[in-house]
Structure formats: structure tokens, C-alpha cells
């Protein structure tokens, strides 16, 4: 039996609230219902591998995961592998691009959007579960497409193309050169050369040129943006705990994520204490009472707030093993 499924389910939230574990439990839950599921984590620290016991070298490859007989696919993001998959001509490989695509090279957010869009286009999965970087970095992820758009600003790219290859059509050459002078880009590069040396400037222009030639791949990010804007086929899960600071951060994210529509959002309050497992003595102990009261206050706040379509509570789990966490949380999705 197949339940109601969304093409894409995005998990975001502040650090340390159990985002990755909840996303994994969601993947397991949907998969147990008979859906074909892919779980993607773009968290640069690749925490998912700890939960899923994935080997270190599996980043960038879709792997089969088996959790207590439930099977689904999982992918740890690797900028390099995504970049390779784009099929950019190897000959045009450029030192700068190679370095930037390394695990800590800084292109993670942008490459992640490209990967997610490619997976959506492949239509291979009923549901893609996406685990995102914590807190404000989630906003970086959302804004990545805007950054790409700006980076590929037409006039600058034309100029770089000309500077890089000197292959502008003869008739247009003069016009383009005029543009270079008036835009000040030539001057900019002269200054850059002063600081970095000529060699760098040449490799740099080459890198921009390669990116430009392959810009249709990068502009996939804009298609993703449109998908979020126009499709009803996705769901956001905002994960919070019952700590005051986490609640503040969740509100902050909600306010700033302008692509996030309220109709698609579900708040998950994780690590709730008061879910039937407490004993009488717990309610007597002062520090525990402190937690319970705080939790009540915060649940009450979420209940009254109109920031989300609905909210779900998930229990705090008293186990050391992350796999057992996933197992317990999976049952709460029903």
C-alpha cells in the first residue's frame, strides 16, 4: 500500500536537534510503506554515515541501506562526484575548479542543489528526503541558486570569455573590447594580477570560461527554485527541540526562508520528555520539573503560533546507539 507521498521532503533546523536522525527515520518509514526512497545529506560533516554505518569512501555514490530489513537508497553529497557526473569535458579540467570541488572547498551548497535537481529530474524515486546543513547554512543552501544566477551575470561572462580565449567574432571584437574598458574589468584584472600574479589570473579566466561553457548545468539550480515556487509536491520539516534558543532559531529561519511556504511546512518538536515515559518521581525532581515546565511552555507557544501548517512531537530517546534512535523514531511517523 502506498501512502500519500511528496516528491521531495526537506529537513531543516538548527544544529543538534536530531535533524539527520529524524530524516533517516522518515526515509525508513516511507520505504516500509513500499515507496522508493532516496535519502540525501548535504551536511558537510556527513553525520549520516554514522547513523547508517556507511563506509568513508562512499561519498557521492548512491548506496543501498538496510535498516532492520527495510531497504532504501542513501547518498552522501560529494561536490567532486556531482561535478564529475555533470560530464564536463575532462580536458577542460582546471586546477582552481578541482580544488574548489574538494570536500571542504566551499562549493557544497551549490553542488547540492544541482545534485537534488538532477535526482528530481531522473524521476527514479517516489520520494527524495533531503537533510540540510544546520541553522543559517540552510539559508545559504536556499540562496545558492540566487548566487549562481548572479555569478553568471551575462555581461561579465561575455567579457571573461573574450579575455580567456580571444575568440570573439571579428566584427564584435571591437565592441566587446569597448565594453571591457568601460566596465573596468580589465583594470580589475590588472589589480588582481598585482596581488596574485599573472599565472593565477590566467587560470582564473580559464576557470570562469569552463564554468560558463557548462553553465546550463549550474543553472539547473534555477529550475529547482522554480520547483519550490510552483510545485505542490514537496513538504518541509522544520526540526526543533524544546530549548528556548532552538525555538528562537527556528523562528528566525522561518522568517528568512522566503521560498518556504507555510502551506508546505510541518514543525517537528524533537526530544520531548513528557510523552508517557516519565515516572512519578521525575515530576518531583526540581531539575526535571524545570525541563517539563519549559517543554509545556514551548509546546504551548508552537500550538498557538500560526507559523506552520501543523506540528508533530517526537520523544527523547534514552539509548546510546543511533540505530536504535532511528528505530524508535520511525514508529512515531504513523
Amino acid at each position: 500500500m502506498k501512502g500519500k507521498n511528496y516528491k521531495l521532503e526537506i529537513f531543516c533546523g538548527t544544529g543538534g536537534v536530531g535533524k539527520t536522525t529524524l530524516a533517516t527515520s522518515r526515509a525508513k518509514h516511507l520505504s516500509a510503506q513500499g515507496l522508493k526512497v532516496l535519502l540525501i545529506t548535504i551536511d558537510p560533516s556527513l553525520r549520516l554515515k554514522q547513523v547508517l554505518n556507511l563506509a568513508d569512501n562512499s561519498a557521492g555514490q548512491v548506496r543501498k541501506v538496510n535498516l532492520a530489513t527495510v531497504e532504501f537508497d542513501a547518498l552522501l553529497m560529494s561536490s567532486q562526484k556531482t561535478f564529475d557526473r555533470l560530464g564536463i569535458d575532462k580536458e577542460k579540467n582546471n586546477k582552481i575548479l578541482e580544488i574548489l570541488m574538494r570536500p571542504n572547498g566551499g562549493m557544497n551548497e551549490i553542488m547540492a542543489i544541482i545534485e537534488v535537481q538532477s535526482q528530481l529530474e531522473s524521476n527514479e524515486y517516489d520520494s527524495i528526503i533531503l537533510d540540510t546543513p544546520p541553522g543559517k547554512h540552510f539559508l545559504d543552501f536556499l540562496n545558492a541558486s540566487k548566487k549562481i544566477d548572479r555569478f553568471f551575470d551575462k555581461s561579465y561572462i561575455e567579457i571573461f570569455k573574450f579575455l580567456g580565449k580571444n575568440s570573439a567574432p571579428k566584427s564584435g571584437g571591437k565592441k566587446l573590447f569597448g565594453k571591457i574598458v568601460s566596465s573596468g574589468i580589465k583594470k580589475l584584472l590588472t589589480y588582481l594580477e598585482k596581488v596574485t600574479g599573472k599565472d593565477f589570473v590566467e587560470t582564473f579566466i580559464d576557470a570562469i570560461y569552463v564554468l560558463h561553457q557548462n553553465k546550463h548545468y549550474f543553472l539547473k539550480a534555477l529550475t529547482f527554485q522554480r520547483f519550490l515556487k510552483e510545485s505542490n509536491n514537496y513538504q518541509w520539516f522544520l526540526v526543533s527541540s524544546t530549548e528556548q534558543s532552538k525555538v528562537k532559531e527556528i523562528i528566525e529561519i522561518t522568517k528568512n526562508a522566503t521560498h518556504l511556504s507555510k502551506e508546505h511546512s510541518v514543525l517537528l518538536v524533537n526530544k520531548c520528555l513528557d510523552m508517557g515515559t516519565l515516572e512519578e518521581d521525575d515530576f518531583e525532581a526540581t531539575p526535571v520539573k524545570y525541563f517539563i515546565e519549559r517543554e509545556k511552555r514551548i509546546i504551548n507557544f508552537f500550538d498557538q503560533s500560526k507559523l506552520f501548517r501543523k506540528f508533530l512531537k517526537f520523544p527523547d530517546i534514552y539509548e546510546a546507539d543511533p540505530k536504535k534512535h532511528v528505530e524508535s523514531l520511525t514508529n512515531h511517523w504513523d
Partner: peptide, 23 residues
């Protein structure tokens, strides 16, 4: 947080490799 801290420290060697020489 960790991932971004690693990017920050890695960028020292990454950009050194990119720029090769110069100030």
C-alpha cells in the same frame, strides 16, 4: 559548526595551491 570550520582551515592550503605565489 564543524563542516564550515573545516572549510575555513582547509581554505588556507586550497588557496595557497590556487595562487601558487605572490603576496
Amino acid at each position: 559548526a564543524s563542516g564550515h570550520a573545516m572549510s575555513m582551515i582547509s581554505s588556507l592550503n586550497n588557496f595557497k595551491e590556487i595562487f601558487k605565489l605572490g603576496v
